[in-house]
């Protein structure tokens, strides 16, 4: 119950009238205003929510695509090629996993590269922050693919990139699905990084709209909660359709006891 009630509350608040919502009561709405509220939220500030959805989608898709390709390529070389550098790289990956980014210096770097306040800058940031996870996930999976497969392909005349793209990558499908699901939820829900690196109206992401509307809708809690509801829908869909992959991914080899 404790886990469901807040969602029921969000749902109820989202369909109330403005006056009723302002009371904060956990009560059945006297009047269902779902559609009106929806339309109103979408229209506010020149359809900002639609723009935000578009931006968030672009960022999520772009970053996840790059993460899959980069993560698999790095994990592959790291697993297959013994070298004294591997330990160093491993340490950096752990650092990347644990250490929070240094915000202001990152803004400084982004500004110097002309990437500050841009969508592609944001994509690259998400790639940089998600890379460690992707590499470690792929590396441990690739360890279970026999090397003889690479060698068979090499003897068949495959160039290195052909070995990777035509033999290894297709075999990584299960982890790739996991990675896509986990990372897209994480990136779609990310608030902190867009807050720092994507200020400004034209680049808002979905999470930022919530934050902006929080001040704007002080008196219109119904709309604010409708917005929350809309923002919750994509993860809900992912959850409904990919529950298995998520569970697999979250616990993948996590506990080898």
């Amino acid at each position: 119950m404790i886990f469901i009630l807040p969602f029921v509350y969000i749902l109820l608040m989202a369909v109330k009238t403005k006056q009723e919502a302002a009371l904060f009561l956990f009560a059945w709405p006297s009047e269902w205003r779902a559609w009106e509220n929806l339309v109103e939220v979408v229209q506010t500030r020149n359809y900002m929510l639609l723009l935000a959805y578009f931006n968030s989608t672009v960022i999520t898709l772009g970053a996840v695509t790059l993460l899959v390709i980069f993560g698999a390529m790095v994990g592959y070389v790291l697993q297959r090629r013994r070298s004294p550098w591997n330990r160093v790289v491993y340490v950096f990956l752990l650092i990347g996993l644990m250490v929070p980014p240094a915000v202001v210096p990152t803004i400084w770097v982004l500004q110097n590269l002309g990437l500050f306040k841009t969508i592609h800058g944001m994509i690259l940031i998400q790639v940089a922050y998600g890379l460690s996870f992707a590499v470690l996930l792929y590396r441990s999976f690739i360890a279970s693919i026999p090397r003889a497969l690479d060698e068979a392909a090499i003897i068949d005349g495959a160039r290195p990139w052909q070995v990777f793209f035509r033999v290894i990558l297709p075999l990584l499908k299960p982890v790739t699905v996991t990675l896509i699901v986990v990372q897209s939820v994480a990136i779609f829900n990310d608030f902190t990084n867009p807050l720092y690196y994507l200020p400004g109206r034209e680049n808002v992401t979905v999470q930022l709209t919530l934050f902006n509307f929080q001040s704007q809708f002080q008196s219109q809690y119904n709309l604010l909660f409708m917005n929350i509801l809309l923002v919750t829908i994509p993860p809900l869909l992912v959850f409904v359709f990919c529950n298995r992959q998520i569970v697999a991914g979250m616990t993948s080899g996590g506990v080898k006891g």
């Binding site: 752990l94 644990m98 993948s252 080899g253």
Partner: peptide, 8 residues
């Protein structure tokens, strides 16, 4: 690496 699995 797997501890890491949940980090994001």
């Amino acid at each position: 690496g797997a501890c890491a699995a949940m980090a994001p």
